Amino acid sequence: MRSERWSSRTADLTLPERVAWVLGDDDGRPLSTLTEPAGLLVAAAMVELLLDASLLDAGTAYRRGPVEVTDPLLRWVGEGLVAHGGAKADLQHAVTGPRGAQMIRRTMDRLVERGLAAREPRRVFGYLTMPVFGSALRVHDVDALHHDRTAVRAVLEGDEDPDEAVAMLVVLLHHGRRVRELSPSDPALAARRARAVADGRHVSLGVAQDIRRLVSPTVGAVLAALTATTVIGSDH
């Protein structure tokens, strides 16, 4: 989602890419591709698809919307959701197992393709250095990362009210419990601000309606599906 507040280098990032990007390390140190939140990335993609009318919430299922999806990452998520009927009861399959791992990998690959990050070679068996799946990413454009994280912190710390793009990101960070990873000066205040934005406050009326009607319920459902699957799996 575009916003004048983002760096010019990252203006075209999709919402899932934006989530992964702002959770990057301020110093550009390596980030593990295996620790990014698959459920949060899927939720971010679904939010963008729904807001663009490329995906429709039909009550008990998701359906293809009238607007064609042009971004390959978003298209992959959308097609995966509706491929077998789009039933919300099957939502956990989009965020766990192989598909969840693919979501992480595809999102990180996009950051590499855009030149914003690079894979860190890892030593394999102590002597061979090569990029491998699960290898770390190092942020290339640290200035752009600082710029974007500062823009989000300004909202979390109450210095600015969010536009639509920043608001959607803050909603995702709130539901994903990732607000502290933006390193706000007052974590408690930042958490309250994020919760308020996720409730539809500090934003325009139209954005508030989208958050309450569509965004917060969708993100909550995706993360609940992930949690339920994790709990069930832990019993075996």
Score class of each variant (00 low, 15 high):
229 T>R: 15
13 L>A: 11
90 D>F: 04
124 V>Y: 05
45 A>N: 06
180 R>P: 00
226 L>V: 08
133 F>V: 14
70 T>F: 07
69 V>M: 08
83 A>N: 07
188 A>Q: 10
150 T>E: 12
195 R>C: 02
58 A>I: 01
197 V>E: 04
190 A>Y: 05
206 G>S: 08
80 G>P: 05
136 A>M: 09
139 V>Q: 09
151 A>S: 11
173 L>H: 04
178 R>H: 07
197 V>Y: 03
196 A>R: 13
215 V>S: 02
125 F>Q: 06
218 T>M: 06
214 L>W: 08
215 V>N: 02
72 P>A: 06
87 A>Y: 07
8 S>Q: 13
190 A>E: 09
199 D>R: 15
234 S>A: 15
134 G>S: 07
235 D>P: 00
230 T>C: 07
145 L>G: 04
135 S>T: 13
133 F>D: 15
213 R>M: 09
119 R>L: 14
86 G>P: 03
183 S>K: 12
132 V>P: 02
183 S>H: 13
213 R>I: 03
10 T>F: 11
111 L>R: 03
94 A>V: 01
167 A>R: 07
187 P>I: 08
131 P>G: 08
70 T>Q: 13
88 K>V: 06
216 S>L: 00
178 R>Y: 01
96 T>R: 14
15 L>K: 05
3 S>Q: 11
131 P>W: 06
112 V>W: 02
117 A>T: 11
41 L>D: 05
89 A>Q: 13
221 A>N: 03
19 V>E: 04
227 T>Q: 14
44 A>T: 05
228 A>R: 15
56 L>H: 04
139 V>Y: 01
109 D>W: 03
204 S>E: 15
201 R>P: 00
139 V>P: 01
113 E>P: 00
200 G>H: 06
87 A>T: 00
126 G>D: 07
36 E>H: 11
168 M>H: 14
